[in-house]
Design a protein around this nucleic acid. Sequence first.
DNA 1: TGTATGCGTTATGTATACAATAGTGGAGAG
DNA 2: CTCTCCACTATTGTATACATAACGCATACA
Lengths: 250, 250
Amino acid sequence: MAEREVDRSVSQTVKAQLALRDQILSGALRPGERISELQAVETTGASRTPVRMALVRLEEEGLLEAIPSGGFMVKAFSERDISDSIELRGTLEGLAARFAAERGVSARELEPLKECLAAIDELLRQVPISIEAFSSYVALNARFHALLTELSRSPPLIRQIDRASALPFASPSGFVMAQSALPEAQQILIIGQEHHRVVIDAIENREGARAEAVMREHARLAVRNLRLALRNRTHLDLLPALALIKTATD
Amino acid sequence: MAEREVDRSVSQTVKAQLALRDQILSGALRPGERISELQAVETTGASRTPVRMALVRLEEEGLLEAIPSGGFMVKAFSERDISDSIELRGTLEGLAARFAAERGVSARELEPLKECLAAIDELLRQVPISIEAFSSYVALNARFHALLTELSRSPPLIRQIDRASALPFASPSGFVMAQSALPEAQQILIIGQEHHRVVIDAIENREGARAEAVMREHARLAVRNLRLALRNRTHLDLLPALALIKTATD
DNA sequence: TGTATGCGTTATGTATACAATAGTGGAGAG
DNA sequence: CTCTCCACTATTGTATACATAACGCATACA
């Protein structure tokens, strides 16, 4: 019998949660597939109690679905579910931007946002963009959105946005990855960057309505691009998050 | 030793979750107070495993907060947290109304909404409104909002709205309860009812922007009323949900 | 041949035992 | 008298044993 290798650095619950999430997002577990606790115990190395806690968390996170008769299955999403999630997130980010604008933000707090902006500008100067630069872009973009969310100073809203981003395609990096599958990718990234610039400007000038509007437009752009990207699925094999979309068209 | 009385009709996990939620919302457990598993085991009648699952769920729900060193405590909310949550919910409901309007809703689907509307009208005809009628109003109002949310036909959005309503004051009945503490309560309920009427009309005529706008206004009204109600706290002792608001002014 | 019923297996729900850690109180020394 | 350190206790984190319910298969009967 394999003696259990216990890693004491992180809790078993967290370890199991991360491992299971990886399995789901990587597509190792397919949508609709039932997830067996025993199997999860073997693959994660934790015992049943932490595995169960991880499963409950992932269910609340929206990646799993409880089966009425017991147990959990990997949730399946339709294309519309995904695009709705993106729009949902854009709406919440719009509210965050408005809060930031209305409540006032010091120049010092905007500094890191502007640094992000400048760094992204630098990356986008390359035509065409390299793989490494693209991956830096994804990270910077996610950071920009996270910082913007923080500016709202509203813990409930921040929490909700985090939740809404649990679905990989609803997260900023999800946007970006979907867009990367399009031929006109770089042009789209530049438009998105323009949105970022406008929202900062609106927040600086305390124009709440404008800040909100541009973030919503930002999300609508992402929705359009996602739709386009899904039309030519050829490029999308690389996107593990796509594994979550049901194969059957509903 | 007391033999454990096992209720097989519902799962122990659900039973524990409901019991704990009750304890929190009723104020039996105060904000900031650490919640002891052993104590929860005694009060809920379930054993530690289901209790822990319930605690995890309540944490994801936003009612509890994980303590870094282990365990959970009852989350405390500032007045702004609550008002932000109401506005957040209004924003999401606005999106739901817009989706409903844009995607089209059959007359048959609007029927139950209109019945709600009529029933509420009937109740509000009493001046002043009786306690029983008021409690019917709370239920009908919650039902109206739930039905409206459903019309969006967007599972991710519906899910998110449910989540956003976990905080008691962010729920429609929370709106109503806060409003009920005001002298001008009935007048406010009538204004709210007017909003309901407008959103139905907008959805029927497929005016997405108008449907969205009125739901957001609806929430802003609730925020204003909450602020007013909190000014004269005298009436609010009756609102158990208030137990979640931190006592210390931050 | 098809359907229904019963039994067996498997997986989940629940309970509890064990381990480890953090917090607390007391005692001793400076 | 106060501060620090050690030990003990209480509580959480983890593992596993036990109970129970669901699913599948096989067999028998219509």
